[in-house]
């Protein structure tokens, strides 16, 4: 199968869906002729022109609100934030309007809006260009929150986002954007709320690791190391954190008896806390050890490379966390 980068895979999904759905338009800063800071819309302006590839003023709250009204009146806006950190200027529009209007209108209005942007720590982007924020959105009824970790998933999940009728946060970790992987040329969708088993454990598998976004790759690296010592681990990538496929996680836990959640962002009130709570609530008898979390440090993101590296898990710290879990 041909290989594409993560960004090219998502762009292919957008291009294909824009070709068949004239109600889709994209807004953002530099997404027109420039093709997007991360090449998210490269080549599309020449095909679809300014009404559908709309360069905006630097007015995040404004264009989120504008796209809210557009989604209520028959269009399908895609908001490209470049860096997701910029979404924070529009939190009121998102949480009070976008997330609530379908409910408040008793389902008579739809809110088909896709909000995409790069997330994550890396590249000395520093604290205003390194946020993750998905736990915040997963906490709010009304959002679907998608975290693709492979080019294949990026295309399939983006197709689902563009064809649905709900607000979707489509979050692309910046360290994944240029990674390559197999992507089918044909059309396909990946349903939300369906985790992927990124590494299947065998019969003697002794632990389940749930990893999110760029942590999936780092966890797989750690598992390669552990395999050299004959340690077999199952790795699960939820792919969407709202809805969250806890069934797949708990099925794995039932088999392995141990659970670790590896998440680059903050631990308090996070996705790992939610998974741990559900494991205790629904699968206490399956647990041979306490549920463990490995998270990024609870602090803003620093610039200097050694400081930045100290903030987040890596293959070595993940490997150590798994060994600690097995020793429990």
């Amino acid at each position: 199968m041909r290989e594409l980068t993560y960004t090219a895979a998502a762009r292919e999904a957008l291009a294909e869906q824009m070709a068949i759905d004239p109600t889709i338009f994209v807004v953002g800063e530099g997404i027109g002729p420039r093709g997007g800071n991360f090449m998210t819309t490269a080549g599309l302006y020449d095909l679809y022109g300014p009404m559908r590839l709309r360069d905006t003023p630097i007015a995040e709250r404004g264009f989120i609100g504008l796209c809210t009204g557009a989604a209520m009146t028959g269009s399908r806006p895609v908001v490209d934030f470049m860096f997701l950190d910029f979404i924070l200027d529009g939190m009121g529009e998102l949480i009070n309007q976008v997330a609530k209007i379908q409910y408040m209108s008793d389902g008579r209005l739809k809110m088909p809006i896709v909000l995409r942007g790069s997330i994550g720590v890396g590249g000395s982007a520093a604290t205003h260009h390194s946020g993750n924020y998905y736990s915040i959105f997963a906490h709010i009824p009304g959002f679907k929150v998608v975290l693709p970790s492979t080019p294949y998933d990026a295309k399939g999940l983006f197709k689902t986002a563009l064809r649905g009728n709900d607000p979707v946060m489509f979050l692309e970790h910046k360290l994944l954007l240029n990674t390559k992987g197999p992507v089918p040329e044909e059309d396909y969708e990946i349903p939300f709320g369906q985790a992927r088993i990124a590494r299947a454990g065998g019969k003697g598998c002794r632990a389940t690791v749930v990893a999110l976004a760029s942590m999936v790759r780092k966890t797989l690296e750690a598992c390669d190391q552990l395999a050299k010592d004959g340690i077999d681990i199952e790795v699960i990538d939820p792919r969407t954190v709202a809805p969250l496929d806890t069934d797949t996680i708990l099925e794995s836990l039932h088999k392995t008896g141990r659970l670790l959640i590896v998440d680059e962002t903050f631990a308090p009130c996070g996705i790992g806390a939610e998974i741990a709570a559900q494991a205790v609530d629904r699968a206490l008898d399956d647990l041979d050890a306490p549920v463990k979390r490995l998270n990024g440090a609870f602090a803003p993101t620093p610039y200097s490379p050694p400081l930045e590296a100290a903030m987040i898990p890596n293959a070595t710290t993940i490997e150590a966390a798994i060994r600690d879990l097995l020793a429990e």
Binding site: L66, G74, S75, Q97
Partner: peptide, 14 residues
Amino acid sequence: ILQAAGAGYSFKLL
């Protein structure tokens, strides 16, 4: 104010 502008955007696009 923003949502009305968005409706205007939809009506023009459509």
